[in-house]
Computed example of a mutant assay.
Amino acid sequence: MAFWERYPSPPSLEGVSVKQLTIFLLEASSNTCSVKKASEILKLVKEDGNTVREHQETRDFLVKSIVRDISFKKQEMRYVERELKGLMSLLDVQLDTMPGIDLVTASALIAEIGDVRRFPNANKLARFAGIAPVYFGSGGKGREQKSKQGNRALHTLFYNLAVQQVQVAKGSKLPRNPVFHAYYQRKLKEGKTKGQALVCIMRRLVNIIYGMMKHKTTYELPIIKEEEVFNKV
């Protein structure tokens, strides 16, 4: 953001030395960008040659305008998040204690579910979210199919949350939620597709979210030994 605001186009770097650009980048990036990065940028600009276009000043103005707009929206997001934190503390619902649920996701879940007490049990909430299967048939014969009804926004929230539960960290290769990861792998071994396995996780998540909201409890990750996780993969 700082770079594009100061240097909206290659011509704006004309006459800038490696040392000058390095000092700017170090300050703007909290010392994460080095001399190497500054050298690479100036090298690429030199290789491109003259890139000045018609109405270049107007083009630069537009780039800076976009940066200012993004900066304004980021500031507004901070204001909104601060307001959300206040509202969440009043509700005393601790959904963000569960891996994969941040302030925004927790707020979205509460907004879509509303007062969880309006659902007699987790099954009703699952049906409301379109996660519970629907039975098609008559005369004692039929089959269950995935529901395409229900609150689709809430369904999407549970789907994204389910995906995060089975993700594995790139660095450590450890699953974010070992219990759900092991459960997901077990469902795949049972012959279910990835989509079907995720639906199973979504249904379990409904039970957990329902209980956390109804009883205002925190999420406690069940203890599972590391070797048990990898043995189930």
Rank of each mutant, 00 (worst) to 15 (best):
N177I: 12
N207V: 02
E190M: 10
R204W: 00
T193F: 07
K189Y: 05
C200Y: 01
R176K: 15
R186I: 09
K187F: 04
L188A: 03
N177D: 14
C200F: 03
L205Y: 09
M202I: 01
V179I: 12
G191E: 05
Q185R: 11
P175A: 14
G191C: 13
A197D: 01
H181D: 10
G211F: 06
L205A: 09
M202G: 00
P175I: 13
K173R: 13
C200H: 05
N207A: 05
I209A: 07
L205C: 08
G211R: 14
K173S: 09
P175C: 09
Y183Q: 12
Y184Q: 03
R186W: 05
M202S: 05
C200T: 02
P175V: 14
E190R: 10
Q196L: 05
V206I: 04
V179M: 08
L205M: 02
G195P: 15
K187D: 03
G211N: 09
A197S: 03
R176S: 12
K189L: 12
T193P: 05
P178Y: 07
E190V: 02
R186D: 14
I209G: 11
K173C: 07
P175S: 11
K173H: 02
P175H: 02
M212D: 07
V179R: 03
F180M: 14
Q185D: 07
P178R: 09
M202H: 03
L188S: 13
K192Y: 12
K189C: 09
L174W: 11
T193I: 10
V199I: 15
E190T: 06
A182L: 10
V206Y: 00
I209D: 01
R203E: 00
N177M: 11
R176H: 15
K189S: 13
P175Q: 04
R204F: 00
K194E: 15
L188I: 08
H181T: 09
V199H: 06
G211P: 03
Y184N: 02
F180I: 08
M212N: 06
L188Y: 08
G195W: 07
Y183W: 15
Y184A: 01
Y183F: 15
I208S: 03
K194W: 09
K187E: 08
L198V: 13
M202D: 01
F180T: 07
E190S: 12
Y184W: 13
L174C: 06
Q185V: 09
P175E: 11
K194M: 12
V179K: 09
L174K: 13
Y183G: 07
V179Q: 12
G195Q: 06
V199W: 05
A182F: 13
K194P: 01
L188R: 12
I201M: 06
L198E: 05
N207S: 11
V179C: 07
V206D: 05
I209E: 01
L174T: 11
K173F: 12
G211H: 11
G191F: 02
Y210F: 15
